[in-house]
């Protein structure tokens, strides 16, 4: 088990470094160089200025040297310096993170119970119309652009009915982010639950005299939970894209706005740092699920040992 965890940990580090390598390759090895990208094609006439900036950011050093520096930096936890502000990227991210974590946390605390409830009810009910309705709900929610949903909520509950502030409040942004997230949770879980409900062991449980609710909760859900959890990494992906648009719609500062401004100002080191940080978060989550999986499933326990 220890060896299994250690091996997975090494793999996770390799994935994060590979993500860094990928952005490094895109930013540095492509014909355009970061300074030109940042300044935009129309402002790069003045070669002397370009050269000066290159020197300032240390971009005149050989590619291999810069790459090695970057990798060593990441292993030390140093993500470089922003082009725009000249500040440490790691510190900038750390500063913006808490507000986004609050948003994502609030959204997930709505989305996960809601998603569970939808999937559980759909799997458990005998009413066919209710099951169909609940099963169609996630697909409907996931067809709605998140930013538009935020605007509609603003329109209805800030301007129409003055219940929530258009700026500064947490409720509307959290609800906006929670809708696609809960749809995602419900969809993944319901798909797994439906598959598990067809398994003969559920019938065995019912033959023993278990109620439908018990068959779903104690048997099917237990088997569906872990495979569904392996999709958690995708949920983080959702939260990243969701936070970018939600923070823009509700004018909240946070990681999403930071990403948006890094792209708008072409602050490549900042964007690179954000990519590495997000990948690390996703990979860490995947790792946790992978390590937890054998704890729940005895069949995997033997294989991991």
């Amino acid at each position: 088990m220890v060896r299994f965890v250690a091996r997975r940990l090494l793999q996770a580090v390799a994935v994060v470094l590979a993500a860094y390598t990928l952005t490094f390759a895109v930013f540095s090895v492509l014909p355009a160089d970061p300074v030109r990208i940042m300044m935009g094609p129309e402002n790069t006439r003045d070669e002397a200025q370009v050269a000066a900036l290159r020197a300032e950011y240390g971009l005149d050093r050989p590619v291999a040297e810069r790459y090695a520096d970057g990798v060593l930096g990441i292993l030390r936890g140093d993500l470089g310096t922003s082009f725009q502000t000249g500040r440490d990227v790691g510190a900038t991210i750390a500063e913006a993170a808490p507000r986004t974590f609050a948003l994502a946390g609030a959204a997930l605390s709505l989305a996960i119970p809601a998603g569970f409830l939808i999937a559980w009810t759909a799997a458990h009910t005998r009413r066919l119309w209710l099951r169909r309705l609940l099963a169609a709900l996630p697909g409907l929610s996931l067809s709605v652009p998140t930013f538009w949903l935020g605007l509609m909520l603003l329109q209805a509950f800030s301007f129409g009915l003055p219940w929530f502030p258009a700026r500064g409040g947490l409720v509307l942004p959290a609800v906006t982010l929670a809708v696609p997230s809960s749809a995602f949770v419900a969809q993944v879980l319901l798909e797994r639950l439906t598959a598990e409900m067809r398994q003969p062991y559920v019938e065995t449980a019912r033959a023993k005299g278990a109620s439908r609710a018990r068959a779903v909760t104690a048997h099917a859900l237990r088997n569906a939970a872990m495979p569904a959890l392996t999709m958690a990494a995708l949920l983080v992906g959702w939260l990243v894209s969701g936070s970018v648009v939600v923070e823009t719609v509700f004018a909240r500062n946070g990681l999403g706005r930071l990403i948006e401004s890094a792209v708008a100002t072409r602050d490549l080191p900042l964007l690179q740092g954000l990519v590495v940080a997000a990948t690390a978060a996703v990979t860490l989550l995947t790792l946790t699920v992978d390590v937890a999986h054998p704890l729940v499933d005895p069949r995997l326990r033997e294989r991991a040992a």
């Binding site: 003969p200 065995t204 088997n223």
Partner: peptide
Amino acid sequence: PQDPGTALNPL
């Protein structure tokens, strides 16, 4: 049930 391979809860 029919198939003892899948009729018990694996977990």
